[in-house]
Design a protein around this nucleic acid. Sequence first.
DNA 1: TTCAATGTTTAGAC
DNA 2: GGTCTAAACATTGA
Length: 288
Amino acid sequence: MPELPEVETIRRDLQARLPGLIINKVTVLLPKIIISGPKKFDRVVSGATIVRVERRAKLLFLHLKTKQGPRVLLIHLKMTGQLVLTQKKDKVFGGHIIAGVTSVPNRYTHVFFEFSNDDVLYFNDLRQFGYLKLVTEPEAQSIAAAYGLEPLDAGFTAKAFLEICKRRENKKVKALLLDQTSVAGIGNIYADEACFRARVNPARRIGEISLAKKRSLWRAIRFVLALSVKHRGTTFSTYVSVDGQAGNFWRYRQVYGRKGEPCNRCGAILNKTVVVGRGTVWCSTCQR
DNA sequence: TTCAATGTTTAGAC
DNA sequence: GGTCTAAACATTGA
């Protein structure tokens, strides 16, 4: 799926457009996508007003004012989920565009919302891994609380990161980065990028790397994610952000998708291995 | 034809 | 109990 920078980009665009709109009608074409139950979903969501759009880790929280009281619509895009907002004529995309499929609805459209101003929000997902879930405010809070620190928040200090490391000495570096209950929102691309910038071998155990490397890793996580948010995310294969533009972080990447190419730091050929079950590209010369 | 792909959860093994 | 791996979800494209 989109990782933190991509989901954050989508969030910002939705937050700029959705609050205040009333959902006139919701259409569910693939009921299994609504994991809180499609029947109740229709009843609660129809007529609801969008209050605001938030993000925790890679999960979107659409706060709603409904006849039944406040509710939160959770949207997870997983690997190929896509949110497309059509503003009367203009298409606004967020997620992954499937090659050649640029109109909505299409065969990957599973749910769509029609708003009071005629805008329509489509949820598309080629692989059908993504989901929508309607919960109460307290449920949403407990879901949010289960995630680890937000890496771009002020609370993610070097000290806080070192504390996290202390409790995960046996974990491989890459496993720690991908663990959403440690640091929230990092996926495969940014895990590899952060390890490269910190000169850390992603297969090493946390306990094996020096304090200085841990500090570098902390800095690299923030650097890489912030840079990507600034450039509206990474367009890998099919992703585009909510305004229909490709994310521009791709050109700043150092390792992901560069297997067999020379390392930008030392010139050695980048290799690709499997670490904690995920394809991992890194430089065995400068990442120790 | 086989494999890997931006994610998460779960079952099973040690 | 902790920790790790593989599989599962469904589809596409190399």
